[in-house]
Amino acid sequence: MSEVSRSSEVFVTVEGISRRFVPHVSLGDRIAAALGSPLEQRAVRAVEDVSLSVRRGEVLGLVGESGSGKSTLGRMICGILVPSAGLVRIDGESVMSGGRRPRKTTTRVQMIFQDPYASLDPRMRIGDTIAEGPIAHGLVSKADSLAYVQHWLRRVGLDPDAAPRYPHQFSGGQRQRIAIARALAMKPDVLVCDEPVASLDVSIQAQILNLFLALRQELSLTMLFISHHLGVVRHVSDRVAIMYLGRIVEIGTADAVYTDPQHPYTQALLASVPQLVLEDDKMVSFKPIPGELPSPMAPPPGCHFHLRCTFAQARCRVEPPVLRPAGAQAAACHFAGELQFTR
């Protein structure tokens, strides 16, 4: 673990943030509503009242399955999605402006997306893609932009002469390097990475993870690393937050969360991932979680996990648990710290 620039200073704070997605109401529905039929409002509560903080130079891993709200949370921290409630601050400053139509007001946070085939404009030369933001924000003059682009291409392990080429001339791993260069060229303090290696092959994934580790050290970046892959998150993160249906169910140091999980969901999730089998005749190395992921449109009441939880009691079905200290971390479970998990 790098000790380079990790300090105790809180750098990113997320305060009670929520995001609801309300489906568009069609004209037909509105006419029906005007005529007296009940209007069905099924808002998706993608993120519900999440608070967390990230220290300067720290990597926070955000783990969850589809529908857990991890990407929505990442987008709000990056300021490209307006929260329904709550606030994100970087170094004390709000990421969004106030008012009726809030806008992102900082370039100190940048994002890297999952699919490098979709996140690069296929009709722009990659040099122009990388230079666009820095020129617009006055980080570099148009005249100096080529040298600036080449510097960043070299930094992410690409040929600096590749600037005039188009995205289709690169492989998936190389495209992800371009996307990283584009984000870094804005000189951010905070990087939000949303599943940055999910679409890459194993050998290329290792190359990109190594690049992240190196860049983090050199540039003392604060990072939010979003992934569904537990092994990848463990490898790059100092602290880890586990999300389930819009809420953080457990948060703590990577070591504590992985070796001594306190929430039944974390424990079950860790147990459900197949491990490499290195001994003969030892085949079963994973244990599935029973049941389906509930729809985020209609999450169960109380603790969202109670339908699939082997420890669920009557209280879990009505009262949503809050995050509270358990072990070396915090967990949102009524019985955190009291449960005996069988391994």
């Binding site: 492989s171 194993v202 092994g231």
Partner: peptide, 24 residues
């Protein structure tokens, strides 16, 4: 061996992975 070494679970957290250089 290169493929196995590329797995994050095979290295200590935070340490560089032994990667296979180049592209398939």
């Amino acid at each position: 061996r290169g493929l196995l070494n590329s797995l994050p679970s095979r290295a200590a957290p935070g340490q560089p992975l032994t990667q296979i250089s180049g592209l398939p």
